[in-house]
Nucleic acid binder design. Structure first.
Lengths: 107, 107
DNA sequence: TTCCTATGTGGCAATATAGCCATATACTCT
DNA sequence: AGAGTATATGGCTATATTGCCACATAGGAA
C-alpha cells in the first residue's frame, strides 16, 4: 500500500510533465520526429528561457531525449504512447464541451 | 495557433486532474467498476476531506462521475482509455528506473 | 426531533509551479 | 582571440496546488 503509493508518485511525476499546455503542444510537435529548440521556440510567444525550462521538465521526466548537433539541440519523443493518451484526453474534452453546451446534460 | 493553445489548455486541465499519486490510485481503483467514497477513503491515510477534494478534481475534469445512493456516493470512471495511458506511463517509469540504475546509461 | 454516519466545503499555511530577466555556457565563424 | 548564435540556468515574484482542521449538509435510524 505504501509501496503502491510510491509507484504512483513516480507515475504522477511523468504525467505532471505533460500536464501543461505548452509541453503538450511540444509533445505533439514531436510526433513526426525530432525538432530543434529553435523550431519549438517558434511555436510559442514565451521567452526562450521558458521554453528551455519546459523542455528540461519533459527531459527529466523521461518523456523526451535530446541530442546536440553543433549549436543546435534536437529533442525527440521517447514515449510515443503518450500520443494515444492525448487522443484519449481530446475525447474527454470534446465530451465535456458537448455536455456543457447542454446537448447531453447528464442523461 | 492561439486556438491550438486554448485547446491544449483544456487538455492540460484533464491531464492535471490525474497528475497526482492519490488521484492516480483512485482512477486505478475504479477500473473494475464504481466504488463509494467510503471504500476509496480506506485506500489512503489522508483526511476524508482531502479525499473528497481529490474526487471533486477528477469529477470537474470529467474523468469520473458520481451517483448518490442513500448516504453513500459512488464514483465511476468515465474515461477508461486513461487506464491505457497509465500503462504507458508505467513503462516510462520502468525505463527510467533501469536507466538510472546504469543498466542502459545513454547507449 | 435528535443522533449518527457519509460526504462536501471554506479557510488557511506550506509548498510547488510558471514565466520573466539577466547571466552563463557552448559552439561556430572570422 | 573576439563576436555572434543557440541553448541552459539562477534568481525572483506571482500564482496554483495541497492537505489539514473546522464546519456544513444530507440522508437514515431511533
Amino acid at each position: 500500500m505504501k509501496r503502491e503509493f510510491e509507484l504512483a508518485c513516480l507515475k504522477a511525476e511523468v504525467i505532471k510533465a505533460v500536464a501543461h499546455p505548452t509541453r503538450l503542444i511540444m509533445v505533439e510537435a514531436l510526433k513526426d520526429g525530432e525538432r530543434c529548440v529553435c523550431e519549438l521556440n517558434e511555436l510559442f510567444d514565451a521567452d526562450h528561457s521558458t521554453i528551455s525550462k519546459h523542455l528540461s521538465v519533459l527531459r527529466n521526466a523521461g518523456v523526451v531525449s535530446d541530442r546536440k548537433e553543433g549549436l543546435k539541440v534536437f529533442y525527440k519523443l521517447e514515449v510515443p504512447c503518450i500520443l494515444n493518451f492525448i487522443g484519449c484526453i481530446t475525447e474527454v474534452v470534446e465530451t465535456k464541451a458537448r455536455r456543457q453546451l447542454g446537448v447531453v446534460k447528464g442523461k
